[in-house]
Simulated assay, not measured.
Amino acid sequence: MLFAHDTECGLVAAAALVNTAGPDREGLPDVAALDEFFTAYGWTGRHEHTEAELREVRALRPRLRQIWYADTDEVVAVVNGLLRESHALPQLVRHDDEPYHLHAVPRDAPLATRMAVEAAMALADLVRMDELSRLRRCDHPDCENVLVDLSKNRSRRFCDAGCGNRAAVSAYRARKAASHS
């Protein structure tokens, strides 16, 4: 583990949330999809299962996406804005058999607020450690997904949507075609 557990979870969840939106896809089409996302990324606390909550979570995605395209000062501005707007007050908490970790808003805060603050807190750690280079965009030319490179050797190039496999297959086919010509 390169960072604190809650930092890594916050970063991975933020990237996954960003990747639910694309020019030709909606990864959170309905409340049921948000419910699945909530469970898959280990969110706890308040979850209203409403269209309004879904709209609030979707509205967070463009703000988080811009972080993957920003320089350090722009990232800091977004992070500080998210923390300020959410009235974040970091505190150590323990729940659900997890060790002590930071929460900066109450568990009964709206889900989109908690998502914003968790992402902001995790990103603040990256800024403080001068590790923003771990925020990457997928190297596959047909993909607009983002990723967090948590590998020790900083070698991750592709998102979790199968782009690494597609790139390997394309390279294999290109080598095969070159050897037959």
Score class of each variant (00 low, 15 high):
residue 1 M to F: 12
residue 4 A to R: 15
residue 11 L to E: 02
residue 12 V to W: 07
residue 13 A to R: 14
residue 13 A to P: 00
residue 19 N to K: 07
residue 22 G to Q: 10
residue 24 D to H: 14
residue 25 R to W: 15
residue 25 R to N: 11
residue 34 L to Y: 13
residue 35 D to S: 13
residue 36 E to R: 15
residue 44 T to Q: 12
residue 50 T to L: 07
residue 57 V to D: 11
residue 60 L to C: 04
residue 64 L to C: 03
residue 65 R to K: 07
residue 67 I to D: 05
residue 68 W to G: 07
residue 69 Y to M: 02
residue 70 A to P: 00
residue 71 D to V: 05
residue 73 D to L: 10
residue 74 E to C: 04
residue 76 V to F: 07
residue 76 V to E: 13
residue 76 V to D: 10
residue 79 V to M: 10
residue 82 L to A: 08
residue 87 H to T: 11
residue 87 H to L: 11
residue 90 P to W: 03
residue 98 E to W: 11
residue 99 P to G: 06
residue 110 P to Q: 13
residue 112 A to I: 09
residue 112 A to K: 12
residue 115 M to F: 12
residue 119 A to R: 01
residue 119 A to V: 01
residue 119 A to E: 03
residue 128 R to K: 09
residue 131 E to I: 00
residue 131 E to S: 13
residue 139 D to W: 00
residue 141 P to G: 12
residue 147 L to W: 08
residue 149 D to M: 06
residue 150 L to M: 10
residue 151 S to F: 05
residue 154 R to L: 09
residue 154 R to C: 03
residue 155 S to A: 14
residue 156 R to A: 06
residue 157 R to P: 01
residue 157 R to F: 00
residue 160 D to H: 09
residue 162 G to C: 08
residue 172 Y to P: 00
residue 174 A to L: 05
residue 174 A to W: 01
residue 179 S to C: 08
residue 180 H to E: 14
